[in-house]
């Protein structure tokens, strides 16, 4: 089990680094899809089957295809060489590394985490998520439809020719 964790984590970190450092936008999208598939494996390891399926459908099925459509629509699929100056790039890497070290040091100092409830293998399944979603979180769920409508209207507004 722990071997699977390390394998999936290595795939994720490798693909995430390639997303940042690879130049061709199409390759970026492909590596991000690989990263997301590894993340779905992590969800299955965590016994969250519903989230794994939704993650595959929503992210790799919808969002990344949207990215690919835009890249091909705008004809960006050749490697465009727009890069920042060397100083900015080095400082970006240093900033990311320092941020990682600070967060790591901060989390190492935390107290030991105790499980709140006794272990229950049912919570990641559709019935467990559904009971919580349509019980406790019903109002946010309905309000998110308003968010979607406003996002749709906003995307159409931006997409209009003379806007």
């Amino acid at each position: 089990m722990i071997f699977l964790f390390y394998l999936l984590s290595a795939i994720m970190i490798f693909c995430a680094l390639l997303v940042v450092f690879s130049k061709n936008p199409i390759n970026n999208v492909i590596y991000l899809i690989l990263c997301f598939i590894a993340m779905a494996g992590h969800y299955i390891l965590l016994n969250a089957q519903f989230l794994a399926v939704v993650h595959i459908i929503v992210y790799t099925g919808a969002i990344m295809v949207l990215f690919l459509f835009v890249i091909m629509l705008l004809n960006l699929n050749k490697a465009i060489i727009i890069r920042k100056s060397t100083v900015t790039r080095i400082s970006a890497v240093v900033t990311g590394g320092i941020f990682f070290l600070v967060l790591l040091a901060a989390t190492r100092q935390t107290f030991e985490i105790k499980a709140k409830y006794p272990f229950n293998s049912e919570i990641g399944l559709v019935s467990g998520i559904g009971k919580t979603l349509f019980g406790e979180f019903l109002l946010p769920f309905e309000i998110s439809s308003i968010l979607f409508i406003s996002a749709m209207v906003g995307a159409m507004m931006f997409g209009k020719k003379d806007a």
């Binding site: 993650h55 998520i129 159409m156």
Partner: peptide, 29 residues
């Protein structure tokens, strides 16, 4: 969420996915 056996965290992930989908639609436009 899986460690504490509390489904609220996974519902939250669901909401974050909703917000991410809306954000990507607007950002790409």
């Amino acid at each position: 969420s899986a460690y504490h056996s509390d489904p609220s965290g996974q519902v939250f992930v669901f909401f974050i996915m909703i917000v991410a989908a809306a954000e990507v639609a607007v950002g790409l436009s």
